[in-house]
C-alpha cells in the first residue's frame, strides 16, 4: 500500500491540527499563534470547497432519484429546479439583473423564502397544541410534575396568565433558576466531558469513526 493511503496519515494530520489549535487557547506563543491562524484560513478554503462538493453531491443524488423515477421523485425534481435556478439568480452579474441586491434576488428572498421559512416554523405551534393534548397526561408522578411545571411556565409566558395571578412569573423564574438550571448544568457538563473523551480518543488515533466510514 502507498504510504499516503495508510491509516496513520490522516490520524497524524488530525492530531497535529488539533494540537496547533489547542496550545494557543491556553498559552500565548507568538509564532505558534500565527501558525494556528494560518490553519484557520486553510480551513476556510476547505469549507468553501466542501460547500461546492455538497452542491454537486445533492445534484447527483437527486438527479439519480429523478432519472430512476424513485418514490417521491417529483420532490427531487423540484429541489433540482429551485437549487439551480436560485444559484443562477445569485450569480453576481448586476448588468443583466442577477446577483445579490438585485430586485429578482431580493424579491424571491423577501416574498418566497422568508414567508415559507416562517410558515414552517409557525406550523410547529399547531403540532405542539395537538401533541401537548395527547402526551401531557398525568399518568405517573413524574408526568404530573412535568404537567404542572409546563402549565405554570405557559401561564407565566402569556399576558393572560400574569394578569390572572402575578405569582406565575416568580414561580416560572424559580423553575428556570433551580430545577432547570441544575438539570441543564448536568447535561452541559456531561456533554463537555463526552466531547473531551472523544477529543482525546481522536488525538490518540483510537477514534476512527471519521475515517473511511469507521474502518481501520
Amino acid at each position: 500500500m502507498s504510504w499516503y493511503r495508510r491509516i496513520e496519515v490522516p490520524i497524524i494530520l488530525t492530531a497535529v491540527c488539533c494540537i496547533f489549535q489547542l496550545v494557543p487557547y491556553f498559552v500565548k506563543v507568538p509564532g505558534w499563534q500565527t501558525a494556528a491562524e494560518q490553519m484557520i484560513d486553510w480551513d476556510s478554503v476547505m469549507e468553501t470547497f466542501a460547500t461546492f462538493l455538497g452542491f454537486i453531491t445533492l445534484l447527483m443524488l437527486h438527479g439519480r432519484m429523478v432519472s430512476q423515477r424513485r418514490e417521491g421523485w417529483p420532490f427531487s425534481a423540484w429541489i433540482l429546479v429551485t437549487m439551480v435556478v436560485y444559484t443562477i439568480i445569485g450569480i453576481p452579474l448586476k448588468s443583466i439583473g442577477l446577483g445579490k441586491g438585485t430586485a429578482l434576488f431580493e424579491d424571491i428572498r423577501m416574498y418566497v423564502l422568508t414567508p415559507l421559512s416562517s410558515a414552517m416554523y409557525a406550523s410547529l405551534g399547531f403540532w405542539i397544541a395537538s401533541a401537548a393534548y395527547r402526551a401531557f397526561r398525568a399518568r405517573t408522578t413524574e408526568a404530573a410534575v412535568l404537567l404542572i411545571s409546563g402549565t405554570i411556565v405557559m401561564l407565566a409566558n402569556a399576558p393572560v396568565g400574569t394578569s390572572l395571578w402575578g405569582g406565575f412569573a416568580p414561580l416560572k423564574d424559580w423553575i428556570f433558576d433551580v430545577p432547570n438550571m441544575a438539570t441543564m448544568r448536568g447535561v452541559v457538563i456531561g456533554a463537555a466531558l463526552g466531547a473531551l473523551a472523544l477529543g482525546v480518543r481522536t488525538l490518540m488515533g483510537k477514534e476512527r469513526g471519521y475515517l473511511r466510514g469507521g474502518g481501520g
Binding site: G125, I128, A129, A132, Y133, R134, F136, R137, A138, R139, L147, T151, M154, L155, N157, A158, P159, V160, G161
Partner: peptide, 24 residues
C-alpha cells in the same frame, strides 16, 4: 402579538386539562 399569545396558550392549557380530566 401578545393577545394571540395569550389565547393560544389558554387553548393549549384547556386541551391539556380536557385530556387529563377525561383520562382520570
Amino acid at each position: 402579538q401578545q393577545d394571540p399569545l395569550s389565547t393560544t396558550h389558554i387553548l393549549v392549557i384547556a386541551f391539556v386539562a380536557i385530556g387529563n380530566i377525561a383520562y382520570f
